[in-house]
Amino acid sequence: MKSRGMFIFGLLGCLMAGTTTAVHKAPAAVKPPQTIVYPSVASQVSFKSVTELQVTQPSQKIMYGDNPLQFGWLWPGDHASNKPLIVLVHGGCWLNAFGVDHSFPMATALSQAGHPVWSLEYRRTGDEGGGWPGSFDDIKSALKNLDALNQHGINTESIILLGHSAGGHLALLAASELTEIKFKQVIGLAAITDISRYALGENSCQTATPKFMNGLPHEQSADYHQANLIYRQLPASVTLLHGDADRIVPIIQTKLPAVNVEIIPAAGHFDWVHPGSPAFQKLLTVLDL
């Protein structure tokens, strides 16, 4: 099973070869006011299928810091629906080979469901200042600068913090630390929670973890302790959504105390970012709670 997982994720890495942090432009947009209808797909979608989906163009690029990678794309959603702002943290093994652009289908669908969406880019492994703790510092900086959205007509009083995979790890860490922000919900999608355990695995994402942390757990024990959610007190609003067919982030990563956990049968790792998947429909249901 491990060799099969390594092959699948390695193949995805090959498909993404050549992707760099230089890509900051939004994909070609569908002309408004056309609404994109994402057809239903079977579970266990590929990363490539997500990158091939149509998207709508964000309305604004809003900086939260001075570094060119410290920004977020904003979709305004439907003001009349009064749905909470979603702050979205993308995944990708903390690597700069995987940028914010692959979150665009998800952000499109969430905005079409009525939510304003601010999808964050941040410095990652391979970027100057990225890795631990720089990537985490960026997410915290963005959340401390939510007032920047007010001038664009976004209500920041009600916030859902949503992160996928490595982005789920960073989002949950931020929720544990920024206690002054009262999140309506904090949702980890296939989130990495026990980073020390994860760093000892053998798939391509697991072997990228020591690069993010500048060493293995026994080499950087203090940093791993800080970055490990099992040692953090999380707010009661945290929900973990995970597929039992995820070959990239093992289901054991849902073993956190005092959080809500929902396991989705047959769902794979990238189902959460594909708006046509059953897992994504489950996410929409959770967001409406």
Rank of each mutant, 00 (worst) to 15 (best):
M1H: 07
S3E: 15
I8P: 03
F9P: 06
F9V: 10
F9G: 11
A17L: 14
G18W: 05
T21K: 15
V23I: 08
K25N: 09
K25V: 13
Q34M: 12
I36A: 07
T51D: 07
Q54A: 15
Q54K: 15
V55F: 10
Q57V: 06
P58C: 03
N67W: 05
L69P: 06
F71Y: 13
G72M: 00
G72E: 01
W75G: 10
P76S: 03
A80Q: 14
A80Y: 05
S81A: 15
S81F: 02
N82G: 09
K83R: 14
G91S: 07
G92R: 00
H102M: 14
S103E: 06
P105G: 09
M106T: 14
S111H: 06
P116V: 04
P116A: 06
W118Q: 09
T125Y: 04
D127A: 07
E128H: 13
E128D: 14
E128W: 11
I139C: 04
K140Y: 01
Q151W: 01
Q151V: 12
H152F: 15
G153T: 08
N155Y: 09
L161D: 00
L162T: 01
G163W: 03
S165F: 04
A166R: 02
G167K: 03
L173G: 13
A174E: 00
A174C: 06
S176V: 04
E177F: 12
L178N: 07
I181P: 00
I187R: 10
I187S: 10
S196Q: 10
A199Q: 02
A199S: 14
E202A: 13
T207Y: 03
K211P: 02
M213Q: 02
N214R: 15
N214L: 12
G215S: 07
L216A: 12
L216D: 03
H218I: 07
Q220T: 06
A222V: 12
H225A: 15
I230H: 11
I230A: 06
P235G: 09
L240G: 05
H242C: 01
R247P: 06
I252W: 14
I252A: 12
P257W: 02
P257T: 03
V259P: 05
V261D: 02
G268T: 01
G268S: 05
D271N: 09
W272M: 15
P278G: 06
A279M: 10
Q281W: 01
K282T: 11
T285P: 05
T285D: 11
L289G: 09
